[in-house]
Each structure stands twice: as structure tokens, then as C-alpha cells.
Computed example of a mutant assay.
Amino acid sequence: MRTRGTPKNPHNRFQHRVTDRAVDDGWYRDPEDECNPDSLATEVVSEQAKTIISTNQSPDVPFDQSINPYRGCEHGCVYCFARPSHAYWDYSPGLDFETKLIAKTNANERLLEALDKPSYVCKPIALGINTDAYQPLEKHQRITRQLLETLLDCRHPVSVITKGGLILRDLDLLSELARQGLCTVRVSLTTLDNDLKRKMEPRTASPGTRLKVIRRLSEAGVPVGIIMGPVIPFVNDAEIESLLEAAFEAGAQRATWILLRLPLEISELFEDWLQRHYPDRAEHVMNRIRDMRGGKVYDSTFGKRMSGEGLYTDMIRQRFDKQCRKLGLNSHDEPPLRTDLFRRPSGQQIDLF
């Protein structure tokens, strides 16, 4: 399936009815047969969200609340931990996740309502956590920009994680938020190899573009770092040192890493991806992943799910930390985002006088 992360569409685990789909058995296929296309167009439906701020209680992530403007992600990263969530909307976590997207078109209205409630307590909002807020769909929907405009108007702290070059469109808003101590950005940087990027993250920005994003954000005064996530044994783990060096030279100040996670349907999708692109090492990769997960493909235990365990995990951590110390990454604590500047949305409160 050209320009997509996976051609597979595994059964929705919440659906009791299973439908067999057309399969190319290799004998014949009419080039005009729409039952077996080589590529699929992206479909977008609008959702009127009831609420927009999600809360989080996991000790493994550094935020309490987040906003996701979109469900599904056109970036098509084969390893994406958010894929299983697409089953909640009666879609497959496979190809559907990349091609059947949901846009929360009233997201900004719901954000204004939430921030205006007397009970609302200002805490940093992480933007685009489950799926990327700067995926290609945002170019036309502009939901993320609307949210940032509201957060700036309310002087509300926000952090952004992305692997999309579109974030530079909003540099004016991000730089002003950063000037007031209200914004940080993390760029997901997984490889410097364009060929691997095309196979693993087909519709994301190229490594060169992501380094450009880091450079431009840094020059604009926006605190920026990288997340090397996921680290995949024998696929991109050899790049740890070179990737950190490139990010540092581009202006990154901080760096973290996350081990590959394979919950639910992702395991099937990832193993199929390995067999198609790296059949010579597929079994080796999966055996190493099991070694780092206590003999299982995935362990969801808090404290382990993001980093794993065992000797190989320790080696990755030591290499990563050593290179960070050498370069000066993470050399000081990052100041917390300010919450004391927060003000309710203008025009939303009743004038008492």
C-alpha cells in the first residue's frame, strides 16, 4: 500500500461480526478493480466533541491534561501506540487508522468553555499526544492553530510533541507563548535515515525537515528538545549517538527516549512490517523485544512500559545518558511552565457591574 505504514486492517476487537475482504491471490487483478487498490485516499469526518481536555494519571508521562484535535493519524507510523484507540470508533487500528480520520471541529469552542469554568485549575496542557496535532490534515482544518490562539489569549501553558514540519506555520504563536514562559516543544526524532523513515513513518516530515524545525524553534526562543521514540532494537538503536549529536547541533536542549511498545493490535502490524521490510532480522528483533519485556511482546506495567528491563535496556540507557552528558543535553532542570499568568477567556464571563 503506497505511502501508508501498513496494508493490513486487522479485525476491530470490539466487533463480533467479521467480514472477509477481497484478497489478491496473485492470479489476476484488473488494474481498474477498486476492490484491491494500490493506495487509498484519506477520508475525514467531523466530530462535535462533548469535551476536549483529557486528564491523565499515569506516572510514566509528565503531564496531567492533554488535547487531541484529531482521532487517527495520516502520518502512518507503523509502531504508533495510539492505533488501538481507533477501535473505539468502530474502525480498524490498521489501515483505517491512517485513512479514516476524525476532526474535532468544535475543539476551540469546547476549550473556551472549559477554561471559563470557575472550577478550572490552570495546569499545562499537552497538545497532540495520542495523535499528532500537526499531521497533514491540520493544514486545512487549522484546529491546532485555533487552540494555540486561545491558549495565548488566556496565557495558558502548553507543550507540543510533533514530527510534522507544519508546526513552523505557527511559529508566531509559539514564540510569543515561549516569551512569556508558557510553551515548550518536543520533536519526535527517530532516525536520520530517509529510507527507514519512508518505510516506518511514511507521511511524516523528513529527518532533515525535523532538524530544521528544531533549529527554527530554537532561534525563535522556544525551548525545544527531542524524543527518540521508539527505540527499536536492530532497527534504529545504532543511531542513538549520531541522532543526539544532530539534534544538539540543531539547537535541541533536552532529549529523552522511549522503547518500542506493542500493545494489542500493534504487535501484529509491526511483525508484518518487519517481515516485509527486514525479513533477515525480523525474528532477531522480536526475540530481543521479548527479552526486554520479561519474555512477552509487551508489558503494560507502570515504570516498565516506556523503557523495558534487562541488560539490553540498561545498555541503551547508558549509551543515551553518556552521549547526553558529552553534548550537554539535559544539563540543567527545565523551568516549569508558568500558570500564574492565566486569565479566563475574554468576553465569556458575565460583567457584574
Rank of each mutant, 00 (worst) to 15 (best):
His75Asn: 01
Leu262Cys: 10
Arg155Trp: 11
Lys304Ser: 11
Gly208Val: 11
Ile129Tyr: 05
Ser85Lys: 03
Glu245Thr: 04
Leu196Lys: 00
Leu259Asn: 06
Leu341Met: 09
Leu173Glu: 14
Arg293Leu: 07
Lys322Ser: 07
Lys117Met: 03
Arg288Gln: 14
Glu113Tyr: 09
Ile67Lys: 00
Gln348Arg: 13
Pro223Gln: 03
Arg305Trp: 08
Ala133Trp: 11
His75Ala: 05
Tyr312Met: 15
Gly94Met: 09
Ala252Phe: 04
Cys73Ile: 07
Ser331Arg: 02
Gly294Phe: 03
Leu168Met: 03
Phe234Leu: 15
Tyr278Arg: 05
Phe342Arg: 14
Ser300Arg: 04
Val78Asp: 03
Pro31Thr: 06
Leu327His: 00
Glu283Ile: 08
Leu243Pro: 06
Arg288Val: 15
Thr144Phe: 02
Lys8Glu: 07
Val213Arg: 00
Leu244Thr: 00
Asp153Lys: 13
Asn36Gln: 13
Phe302Glu: 11
Pro202Asp: 05
Met200Asn: 14
Pro223His: 01
Leu101Asn: 01
Phe353Asn: 12
His16Ile: 15
Glu309Thr: 10
Asp30Gln: 04
Pro263Arg: 05
Tyr120Trp: 08
Gly308Ser: 09
Pro157Gln: 10
Leu171Phe: 07
Arg305Thr: 06
Ile53Ala: 07
Leu274Ile: 04
Leu166Arg: 02
Val222Cys: 10
Val121His: 12
Asn194Asp: 10
Lys117Tyr: 02
Lys199Leu: 06
Asp20Arg: 09
Met286Gly: 02
Ile240Met: 00
His284Ser: 14
Glu239His: 14
Asp170Lys: 04
Gly94His: 05
Arg71Pro: 01
Thr144Gln: 04
Ser58Gly: 02
Phe342Ile: 12
Asp237Ile: 06
Tyr79Asn: 02
Leu173Trp: 15
Ala252Lys: 02
Gly225Glu: 04
Tyr298Glu: 01
Leu269Arg: 09
Leu166Phe: 06
Thr55Phe: 15
Glu201Met: 08
Gln349Trp: 15
Cys77Arg: 00
Gln65Asp: 01
Val213Leu: 05
His140Ile: 07
Ser39Trp: 08
Pro345Tyr: 02
Phe234Pro: 15
Glu265Ile: 07
Glu43Cys: 08
Thr42Gln: 04
Asp60Lys: 10
Ser159Thr: 01
Thr256Leu: 07
Val158Thr: 01
Trp257Thr: 01
Arg186Tyr: 09
Cys183Pro: 13
Arg2Thr: 04
Arg290Met: 11
Asp24Arg: 03
Asn330Asp: 01
Arg110Lys: 11
Pro335Gly: 03
Val44Glu: 08
Arg203Val: 00
Val235Lys: 09
Arg13Val: 11
Arg338Leu: 12
Ala133Lys: 02
Pro10Ala: 06
Glu265His: 02
Gly310Ser: 14
Gly26Met: 06
Asn108Tyr: 12
Met200Glu: 05
Ala247Thr: 14
Phe320Asp: 08
Trp257Gln: 00
Glu176His: 08
Arg210Tyr: 10
Lys50Ile: 13
Phe248Asn: 04
Gln253Pro: 09
Ser267Phe: 15
Asn56Lys: 05
Pro69Leu: 09
Lys100Ser: 04
Asp195Thr: 12
Arg179Lys: 08
Ser66Cys: 14
Arg2Glu: 06
Arg290Tyr: 10
Ser46Glu: 11
Gln253Val: 12
Leu182Met: 10
Ala103Thr: 02
Glu271Tyr: 12
Leu192Phe: 13
Gly347Glu: 06
Ile232Met: 11
Thr301Phe: 08
Ala255Met: 13
Ser267Met: 15
Ala282Phe: 07
Asp172Tyr: 12
Asp38Gly: 03
